[in-house]
Design a protein around this nucleic acid. Structure first.
Lengths: 176, 176
DNA sequence: TATTGTCTATCTACTGATAGATAGATAAAT
DNA sequence: ATTTATCTATCTATCAGTAGATAGACAATA
C-alpha cells in the first residue's frame, strides 16, 4: 500500500488536470482516500503547499521521462520526437491535459508560490529543448524553436481535450 | 451608462480570463458593480447561463474582429497575419489570455453546455482559417494547418502569461 | 396595470482551516 | 525491563467565510 501522502498527490493530480486548481477541495481528496479532510491538512498544511509539492513532483516525473525516452536519441530530430512522445503519453494515457498546461492557464489566479513552480517547469522544458538542438544553431534560434514546440504541444493538448479527439493532437504534433 | 447585463458580462469576462471559471463568483461580480448577488441571478439564472452567454458574446466579438482585420486581406498570408493580430490584441491589450483558451483547459470540468460553446468557438476558428487558405490546397492539409495555428497561438498566450513576458507570444507567432 | 430591475433576507451546502484528543510506533533514560 | 517522552497519523468537532440559489417585497417604468 502506497503511503497516504503519495495517494493524496495522485488524487490531486488527476483532479487538477481534469478540472483545475480551484475546483479541487481537500474534502474531495479526503473522501477519495476514505479519510477526513483534517488529515489532509496534516500532510499539506495549506492548499498552496499541496500545489507546490504537486508541481514539483510532476516536473521531476516529466524530466525523468524525457531523459529515459531520449537516452538513445543521437540527433536533434530524435530528441524532439522523444519530447513529443512524452507529451503525447501524458495526454493519451489518462485523458488529461498536462498539469502545467492547466495551471499555466490559471497562473494569474494562483498563489504566487504555485505560479512560480509552474514557471520553473516551463523554463526547464525550454532549456531541455534548447540543449537538444545542434550547438551550431544560434541561441536565439534555438530558444524560439523551443518556445514554439512547447506552445504548440500545450495548445494541441488543450484543443484535443476540448474537441474530444486525440487525433487532433497527432495532427498538430506531426506537423511541427 | 451601459446596462447591467453588459457590465456583468464585462466583469465576468475579465475575471474568468484571469482566474478561470470556478474562481469567479456571483458575489464578486455583484460587488464590482455595486449590486447584490441576487440581482446577478436575475440576469443569469444559473452560473452556467452566464458561462454560455459569455462564450457566445466572446465568439461573436472575435469573429467580428477577424472579419474587420481581414477585410482588405487578399492573400492567405495576409489573412493569417490578421488572425494572428486578433489573438495578439486579445492578450496584450488586457494582460489576459483568450477566454476560450482558459475554458478549453478547464473543459472537462465545465458544465456541458459551456464546454459545448467553447468547442463551437474553436470549430469556428478552424473553419475560418481553412477558408482563409488557397482553395487549391487539399482539405486535409488546410485543416492541419488551421489546427496547428490555433494550437500554437493558444499555447503561446498561455506561455507568455505564465512567464510574464509578452515577447514570448511574438517570438512564437512570428515563427509559425 | 404589467413589466423590469433591484432589494432584503434567507437557505443549504461547501470551503479552507484550526484545536484538541487519541492510539500506536519509536526511542531514550532509568 | 520499565518508564518517560516524542513523533506520526489519524480522528472529532468546530469555525468563519463563501458558494450558488430562491422567495418575496418594493419601486420605477412603460
Amino acid at each position: 500500500m502506497t503511503d497516504t501522502r503519495t495517494q493524496l498527490l495522485d488524487a490531486a493530480e488527476h483532479s487538477m488536470r481534469k478540472r483545475g486548481y480551484h475546483a479541487v477541495s481537500f474534502r474531495d481528496l479526503a473522501d477519495e482516500l476514505g479519510i477526513k479532510s483534517a488529515s489532509v491538512h496534516y500532510h499539506f498544511r495549506q492548499k498552496e503547499d499541496l500545489g507546490v509539492a504537486l508541481v514539483q513532483r510532476y516536473a521531476s516525473h516529466v524530466l525523468a521521462a524525457l531523459e529515459l525516452k531520449a537516452s538513445g536519441a543521437d540527433s536533434p530530430a530524435a530528441r524532439f520526437s522523444a519530447f513529443k512522445e512524452v507529451y503525447r503519453d501524458a495526454l493519451v494515457t489518462s485523458d488529461e491535459i498536462c498539469l502545467c498546461g492547466m495551471l499555466g492557464a490559471e497562473a494569474l489566479g494562483l498563489p504566487d508560490v504555485v505560479a512560480a513552480e509552474v514557471r520553473r517547469f516551463f523554463e526547464a522544458n525550454v532549456t531541455w529543448l534548447m540543449e537538444a538542438q545542434s550547438d551550431t544553431t544560434p541561441e536565439d534560434e534555438r530558444r524560439q524553436r523551443a518556445l514554439h514546440i512547447v506552445a504548440a504541444l500545450q495548445g494541441a493538448m488543450m484543443l484535443a481535450s476540448t474537441l474530444g479527439d486525440f487525433g487532433v493532437f497527432d495532427e498538430i504534433a506531426d506537423r511541427i
